[in-house]
């Protein structure tokens, strides 16, 4: 038997349906744009199915804590790190530097 992943929620108990919407932030579009560029024919570095595997294996706690686009970006980073294309430490260093610039 195949396992039931935590993302596989069809028919699961859930609360009342509230039709909400949210703005689509630039960083979310940018992350999707990067994924699309990396998935294109010549590069083929991150397919949608790899992204799905990424968020299906990041652990239920993290998956549940993140929004849809956060999950997708987190998964993309994990897949790129798995392939040795980027390192998390390098990305984190850039994040720290940006935060310092922001607060400075």
């Amino acid at each position: 038997m195949a396992q039931r992943g935590y993302h596989d929620i069809g028919g699961a108990p859930a609360g009342r349906f509230l039709p909400t919407d949210e703005p689509w932030h630039f960083w979310e579009k940018q992350s999707e744009a990067i994924r699309n560029l990396l998935g294109e024919g010549a590069r083929r570095m991150a397919s949608l199915d790899e992204i799905r595997r990424g968020f299906e294996t990041m652990g239920e706690d993290l998956y549940g804590q993140l929004t849809f686009y956060e999950r997708r970006l987190e998964a993309l980073v994990r897949i790129l790190e798995e392939k040795g294309i980027v390192s998390r430490a390098d990305l984190e260093a850039r994040v720290v530097a940006m935060r310092e610039r922001e607060s400075g």
């Binding site: 993140l66 970006l73 790129l80 850039r94 940006m98 935060r99």
Partner: peptide
């Protein structure tokens, strides 16, 4: 509020790539 972690991570990934 302060830019969220993932908003910064998105920029970081763009710059890195």
């Amino acid at each position: 509020g302060p830019a969220g972690y993932y908003a910064l991570l998105s920029d970081a990934l763009r710059d890195e790539l």
